[in-house]
Amino acid sequence: MDVEKLKKMAGAVRTGGKGSIRRKKKAVHKTNTTDDKRLQSTLKRLNVNAIPAIEEVNIFKDDTVIQFQNPKVQASIVANTWVVSGTPQTKKLQDVLPGIINQLGPDNLDNLRRLAEQLQKKAPGAAEVAAQEDDDDDVPDLVPGETFEAAAEENQS
């Protein structure tokens, strides 16, 4: 081996100064606290305030619900920013729905009813799918007493 190449390899594994212990691999320590510190400093600039005594947060997304039990909730009304931190659980809407109905007020009950109707429309049964496919091929019925010719004459006048 070449002496220069050997010195170069030996210098690459030395972690300290001259006379220190040589290691095969330099240990690189990564900390996740830098991301957390960066987030906290950004939230501090937004002037978020902690909201106490929130036991549960549910975020509705399509057919799933992201649920937080005893989360830490912070909000900045001016910046239109809400921060929910904690351990999330992803559940299906059908599983969570009975427990959520008790917590909703009269204003949100209508929204929940619309959401349930959308779920029923998204998941039709096999007979309904076959009926929908047959209906697509049919020509819609005309309004009684009207013809295409009469409608065309009205548009020309």
Rank of each mutant, 00 (worst) to 15 (best):
V73M: 01
F68W: 01
S85Q: 10
P124E: 09
R114F: 12
G105L: 08
V48E: 00
A123M: 07
E55W: 00
P124K: 06
I101Y: 05
A126M: 11
N47F: 04
V83W: 00
K92Q: 15
V48R: 05
P98G: 03
Q132C: 03
N58L: 13
N70H: 08
G125K: 13
A27K: 11
A131N: 08
T34V: 11
D107I: 10
A53V: 08
V84T: 15
T31F: 06
N108W: 03
N70G: 01
A130N: 03
V96A: 02
A126H: 08
Q89N: 07
A27I: 14
D63Q: 12
V78D: 04
A116G: 03
V57Y: 03
P106R: 07
K30H: 09
L115G: 03
Q103D: 08
F60N: 04
T34D: 09
Q69G: 03
K26P: 03
K122V: 07
A126D: 11
A27Q: 09
L104E: 00
Q74K: 14
Q67C: 08
K61Y: 10
S85L: 01
D95H: 11
S41E: 15
K91D: 01
D36Y: 09
D36M: 04
L43S: 08
D35M: 11
Q74Y: 04
K91V: 03
K92L: 15
Q132R: 15
I77L: 12
L119R: 10
L46E: 02
K37C: 04
L39F: 13
E117K: 02
D62N: 13
N70L: 05
D95M: 07
I54Y: 04
R45C: 06
F68I: 00
N49T: 14
D107V: 11
V65R: 04
G105R: 07
D62I: 04
D63A: 13
E56G: 00
R45N: 15
V48C: 08
I59H: 06
L109M: 14
N70V: 03
F60T: 09
L43V: 06
P98H: 02
K61P: 00
K25T: 08
K24N: 14
L109C: 03
N102R: 13
N58V: 09
